[in-house]
Amino acid sequence: MGSPAGGDGLPDEQPQRLVYVGSFYIDLYEVTNEAYGRFIASTGHPMPENSNPRATLWNDRHPFPGSERHPVVNVSWLDATAFCRWEGKRLPTEAEWEKAARGPDGRTYPWGDEWNPAWANSASYWAGRRIDFINSTEWEAFWIHGEGARIAKAKGLNGEVLTLPVGSFPEGVSAHGLHDMAGNVAEWVQDWYDPNYYRSAPLADPVGPERGAIKSMRGGSWLKPAVSLRTSDRDWGTMDSRPSGTGFRCAKDAF
């Protein structure tokens, strides 16, 4: 684990280490609105909602028409774990997620080591050109104050959210055949987040710190730059937050 390409990633990706991860199952796709709808119909669980009404993509406990195959967003870590438990599964650990994304050869992106804006749903994809948004000022100029905001208003669900149906980028699959491991939505994983965890984590089947205040996310989302879509990049959120760019996929023990 840790940053690919010689250990030149962000501080919370250090130190780079070789970690053993045992066998497990993990879903090929992010959980969709359609699947989540079956869950709330069966259990009475609340529908996904955001504090910003424009970012809420459900009405009367049903997803907006045409968004059934989009990944569910506005779900908290607690919502995600409840869904996985309902399916007899669980969230993947950070280590499992990274293994599934990077493949046997430690790729920088699920498909390889070179960024391709046409192979993942990201800010670069919506810009329609190779733009890596090297710094936050450049990204904010595009996404918050400029072209990105106009694109979201014109093409986004409810004029806000630019998810796409799962599996929309077959060229961007990982070596293990998983879709959307970069972009579309960031994904909740099982672990507590600790920026210094790699310094003392075990080298076999790490499961994250024993306790914490925030949970880890992986994979980046439709509104993030290329640096946030690297297979080693780490993000986080509070257990009860429901971001419009975050969803999840499920995993399961192999034995």
Score class of each variant (00 low, 15 high):
D191Y: 08
G220D: 02
S168C: 13
M181I: 12
A213W: 06
R199F: 07
K215Q: 14
G183C: 10
A175G: 10
G172V: 03
G219Q: 03
L178N: 06
Y193G: 06
N196C: 12
V166F: 04
P165Y: 11
S168E: 07
P202E: 03
N184S: 14
Y198T: 04
P170N: 13
S221V: 08
E210Y: 04
S216W: 01
R199E: 15
A201D: 01
P209V: 11
G172T: 04
V189H: 05
V189M: 12
M217K: 07
A182S: 13
G172I: 02
D180F: 04
V185Q: 10
N184R: 12
G219S: 07
G177H: 07
L178F: 02
M217F: 01
S221M: 10
Q190C: 12
S200D: 10
D191L: 05
D205Y: 00
G212S: 12
G172C: 04
V207Q: 12
G172N: 05
S216N: 11
G212T: 13
Y197A: 04
M217H: 03
G167P: 08
P206C: 08
P170F: 12
K215T: 07
L178C: 12
A204M: 01
G212I: 05
M217N: 10
P202Q: 06
R218N: 07
A186G: 14
A175M: 05
Y197L: 08
M217R: 11
A201L: 01
G220R: 00
W188F: 09
Y197F: 10
R218P: 02
S216Y: 01
G208D: 07
D180L: 04
Q190A: 13
P206K: 02
D194K: 06
A182W: 01
H176N: 14
D205T: 00
G208K: 04
E187A: 04
V173I: 15
S174F: 03
Q190N: 14
W192E: 07
A201N: 00
D194A: 09
N196R: 15
R199W: 11
G219L: 05
D205I: 00
H179W: 08
S200F: 07
D180P: 08
V173Y: 02
W188I: 13
Y197H: 13
Y193V: 06
A182M: 03
G167W: 04
K215E: 03
Q190I: 05
D191E: 08
E187W: 02
V185Y: 07
Q190G: 01
Y193I: 08
G177D: 14
S221R: 03
M217S: 07
H176A: 15
N196F: 14
P209Q: 14
R211H: 15
D205H: 00
L178P: 01
R199Y: 07
Y198C: 00
V189A: 09
P170Y: 12
E187Q: 15
L203S: 02
V185A: 15
P165Q: 13
P202I: 03
